[in-house]
Design a protein around this nucleic acid. Sequence first.
DNA 1: CATTGTGAACGCCTTCACAGCC
DNA 2: GGCTGTGAAGGCGTTCACAATG
Lengths: 225, 225
Amino acid sequence: MTERFARRIPEPTVVRLPLYRRVLVELSSRAVTTVSSAELAAAAGVNAAKVRKDLSHLGTYGTPGTGYDVDFLLGQIRRELGLDSEWRVAIAGMGNLGHALARSQGFSGQGFSVVALLDVDPAKLGEVVAGVQVRHLTELPEVAAETCPSIGVIASPPGAAQDVCDRLVAVGIGAVLNFAPAIVTVPPHVLLRQVDFAVELQVLGFYLAHREAAEPRADMSRPAL
Amino acid sequence: MTERFARRIPEPTVVRLPLYRRVLVELSSRAVTTVSSAELAAAAGVNAAKVRKDLSHLGTYGTPGTGYDVDFLLGQIRRELGLDSEWRVAIAGMGNLGHALARSQGFSGQGFSVVALLDVDPAKLGEVVAGVQVRHLTELPEVAAETCPSIGVIASPPGAAQDVCDRLVAVGIGAVLNFAPAIVTVPPHVLLRQVDFAVELQVLGFYLAHREAAEPRADMSRPAL
DNA sequence: CATTGTGAACGCCTTCACAGCC
DNA sequence: GGCTGTGAAGGCGTTCACAATG
């Protein structure tokens, strides 16, 4: 029980915390005060043992015989996820995906705020989306100096992804979320996460093609979610 | 070596196959005829041992001392992913995200084709995106009868996600890809995969908040991708 | 008495390391 | 000599099952 070092939380657990958080927000809004691991598990689509083990990584917040206090647990998860501070997000690439992300409620509020939008298409420059004006990608140094984003989102065409990524890294971004169907690389100190629609579709294609051969479990959500 | 039963391929391997495929397509277009596991690994952002183990699940396709034949391997992966047949995709929800998906090259060609677009907004009905007309969600039974989609994509607001999902399942869809930030459930015989932007962002927030405490590896791509 | 927290068992993927082959 | 394929070892998350607890 050496708690001297910050307890490491397994990545699969980290990925499930936002799910629990969403369920708890919903419960809280319905004025539910208590949840058991079984209820939380059902709502989040996982099993109860996993919920308990996951939450035990955060601390001892449950009450035997009763369950977890919804609001208290919500606060702990929010704190653990670093959602007390507001992370500033810059989105590069304002095609349909960029627009969708900029307007997504997950990107504004809830601990995140979109502070910069970039593109290279003259037709899009100046447009205001979600209260933020689209600026030219080459102006990124100035835009970054003004808005200090800590997370950069790549929503550009695949061919431009690495260039966009390099520019984001150059202005000191700490984390990159890449939606372009291309593998981008970052220096070791920069966090990177990739989301690839085409991959998801191909994974479904694989299991569809093989489904009668050897029935996989129906729910194979989140290899990374 | 009982090969009587279709060799099961681990899900993490299935998720990486589309990555290898993308690299091979690129190599093939540059007329490269051979790759070693080390080269493929570098381009896909994984390590060489993993590449070899992954590919060994498909068969014995490499040549010691030389590597893998690019075009042959590409064909094998394509076949394994079920991309010989064209999977028909229906997209429900034609907001910015739906548009982005409909136009995405990953959703047209490459073994997939968008055959149906659904929405409930009168302003969007009739619009043609990527050569397909947007129809009302309530017409799904007729649309499905005409186009026989086997994959349904949910790009609707979260509140409508389960209803949309139920409608897709009701018309016999075999797999669902959910982009709405909501947990949807499907019958056991239907495949389900979830992609959640908000979760990805929150995971980055977690590691940003903890990064100096206990440096995680920089590349934490694809928990589920 | 319902429910948590957690050691222990389990299963599975990853990584290693090297024999075998071109 | 270079590189693949793969048993074996290792690491890690999941699941089990139950003692502890309000």
